[in-house]
C-alpha cells in the first residue's frame, strides 16, 4: 500500500505526523518505508534522528534515482540500526522493518515530469510495494511536479493500492486551503482525473488529518479565563461548520493529532519511552499516532463517503 502525505501549506506538521505514523505502523509489526519526496528540503532524516542524512544523503539519494544520475537503487537507511537515538536503535520484538529513503543533500524541486523520471518513479513504487506492507511518501506542500508525478505513477500501477492523506491545521485558512488542494482548480482531483484517475474513486482515497489540534477542553487550557475559553469554544464550533461545508469535516477526516509541546519544540518521533519513562510527551499524542497508523490500512475507515 502506498500512502501519499500532502498539505496545501508548508509547516503544517505533515512530515512529523507521517513519520510518526510509519514508526507506529512498524511497531505494530509491519514492514514499512518512508520516501522523502519533499525534494526542495529533504529533512526526514532529522525526524528519524539519523544524523548522517539529517539534511538528505550525500550518497545516491532519491533525486539521483529519479533523475537517472546513474543510481540503480537509491540509498536506504535502516532506522533501527542507524538512528542516533538510543531508544530507536534496537528493533523492538515483533516490530517490522523501518527503512528511510532520503533525498539528496542539496537537491532541488523537480523541474517538470519527464517520461524517464516518471518511469523510474513507477519502478520504485512497484519494487517497494513488493517488499513493504506500507510505503509512506512525503509529497511536500502544495501543487507541485512531485504531486503530479505520483498522480501519474499511480495511474500506471492500477493494481497497487494507494491512499492520500491531506494534512492541515485547525484554522480557517488551513481548512479552506486543504479543501482547495483537493477540490480546487488544478487540485488533486482535477489533475488526477486529467491523468486518467476516476474522479470519484480518487475522492474515496483521500482523507484529511488535522495536526496540532488544541481541543477547547484540553488540559493545557485549564488556566484560561472563562472569556477566553468561551471564545475558543465558539471558534471551534465555527471551524467545525466551516470544515463540514468544505467537506473537510468529520466524515472525510481520518484522525487528528493533538498539539504536543515536545513537537512544538522539536521535530521527532514520539516513542513509548517518551510517554512512559521520561514523560516528556503526552500519552494522547502517542495514542493518536497509533490510532492513525491502524486506520490508514483499515478499510472500514476508507469506505465511500
Amino acid at each position: 500500500m502506498l500512502i501519499f502525505a500532502i498539505s496545501d501549506k508548508g509547516g503544517t506538521g505533515r512530515s512529523v505526523t507521517s513519520t510518526n505514523i510509519v514508526y507506529r505502523h512498524a511497531l505494530q509489526g509491519n514492514d514499512v518505508c518512508y520516501l522523502d519526496f519533499d525534494f526542495g528540503s529533504p529533512t526526514a532524516g532529522a525526524i528519524f534522528s539519523v544524523g548522517s542524512v539529517a539534511r538528505g544523503t550525500t550518497r545516491k539519494g532519491l533525486h539521483d534515482y529519479l533523475l537517472g544520475e546513474g543510481a540503480p537503487e537509491p540509498h536506504r537507511v535502516d532506522v533501527w540500526t542507524e538512528s542516533d537515538r538510543e531508544g530507536l536503535r534496537t528493533k523492538p520484538p515483533g516490530a517490522g522493518r523501518l527503512v528511510l529513503l532520503p533525498g539528496n543533500e542539496g537537491g532541488g524541486e523537480l523541474p517538470a515530469v519527464e517520461e524517464e523520471t516518471l518511469r523510474r518513479c513507477v519502478q520504485l513504487f512497484s519494487r517497494l510495494d513488493e517488499e513493504f506492507d506500507l510505503v509512506m511518501v512525503d509529497v511536500s506542500a502544495g501543487r507541485s511536479f512531485t504531486a503530479e508525478m505520483v498522480l501519474q505513477a499511480t495511474v500506471r500501477l492500477p493494481s497497487v493500492p494507494f491512499r492520500w492523506l491531506v494534512f492541515h491545521r485547525w484554522t480557517r485558512q488551513h481548512i479552506i486551503a486543504a479543501d482547495g488542494l483537493v477540490t480546487g482548480a488544478d487540485g488533486l482531483l482535477d489533475a488526477g482525473t486529467r491523468f486518467g484517475h476516476d474522479r470519484n474513486a480518487l475522492r474515496d482515497r483521500i482523507r484529511f488529518v488535522r495536526t496540532a489540534v488544541l481541543e477547547p477542553d484540553a488540559a493545557e487550557l485549564v488556566g484560561l479565563r472563562d472569556e477566553q475559553r468561551a471564545w475558543l469554544f465558539a471558534c471551534d464550533t465555527e471551524l467545525r461548520e466551516l470544515a463540514s461545508r468544505h467537506k473537510v469535516g468529520r466524515t472525510s477526516m481520518l484522525g487528528k493529532i493533538p498539539l504536543d509541546p515536545i513537537l512544538q519544540w522539536r521535530e521527532q518521533l514520539i516513542s513509548d519511552e517518551d510517554v512512559l519513562a521520561s514523560k516528556i510527551a503526552n500519552a494522547e499524542t502517542a495514542a493518536a499516532f497509533d490510532d492513525l497508523a491502524k486506520k490508514i490500512v483499515d478499510d472500514a475507515a476508507w469506505e465511500g463517503l
Binding site: E73, Q123, S126, R127, E130, E131, F132, D133, S159
Partner: peptide, 28 residues
Amino acid sequence: LGAISARFLDVVQSSPLLDRRAPFKIAR
C-alpha cells in the same frame, strides 16, 4: 548486471496478467 537482472524481474512482476496481491511481502 544487477540493474539489468532487476529489470528482467520487473518485467514479470508488472505483467497485467498478475493480480499483484501476493500472499506476503518479501524482499528480493
